[in-house]
Amino acid sequence: MVVTQRQSEEEDQKEAMVGKCEKCRREMIRHEYYAGPQGAVDYDPERWGRSDDLIPQFPTLMGSMEYAEIRNSEEGRVCKECGHVNNLLDTNIWGWPRAVEQTRRVNAAHRAIVQAAAQADAKIAEEAAE
């Protein structure tokens, strides 16, 4: 796998991942997605998470995960040119699943703490009013 990246100096940050056949080297998959950072015009906070996430998912990482899902599907592994069944792409060596799951857990924990604090504040206010 080869990763080539260039930061856009304009508003849109369009990225793509391309998969080639291991045997004939023909392009099998091209997965394009917008990966603008938080605050950019093309950034969509709910595309890969929630708008209230404390820590947003990294768009390049999420687009890479989408690519891997497509690439590892039965249709995504079979080359339409030569019929070769390509090996599965091991995302664990890149750490993508772990990073995504850790970010999800951090955000879930943050929401739980905020909710617990609000409940504690309500209880304190109720007890003070008695």
Rank of each mutant, 00 (worst) to 15 (best):
E101F: 05
E66S: 07
M28P: 01
Y67P: 02
A35R: 02
W48G: 09
C82N: 03
E9K: 12
V3F: 13
F58T: 06
T4K: 15
A117T: 13
I113M: 14
K14P: 03
K14L: 09
R98M: 08
A122E: 15
R104S: 06
D12R: 12
M17Q: 07
Q13D: 10
E46V: 12
V3W: 10
V3D: 12
M1E: 11
H84T: 04
G19T: 04
P59F: 06
R6Q: 14
Y33D: 05
I93Y: 10
M65W: 14
Q7C: 11
E46F: 02
Q115C: 12
F58L: 09
A116F: 02
P56M: 05
A40D: 09
E127C: 08
E11V: 08
A117C: 10
S64L: 10
R26G: 04
R25Y: 11
A35T: 06
M1C: 09
Y33N: 01
K80Q: 04
G83L: 01
E46W: 00
E32T: 07
I70V: 07
R26N: 13
R71H: 03
D53I: 07
W48P: 00
N92G: 04
A116M: 07
A99S: 10
N86R: 00
E10P: 00
A117M: 13
V2N: 12
K20H: 13
G63R: 03
E101Y: 05
M17I: 15
G76C: 03
Q13Y: 06
D42L: 02
Q119R: 14
R104H: 12
E66F: 01
Y33I: 04
Y43C: 08
Q13I: 02
E66R: 04
A120F: 11
D53F: 12
E75P: 00
D42T: 03
Q38T: 10
V78Q: 05
N86E: 01
D52V: 05
I29T: 01
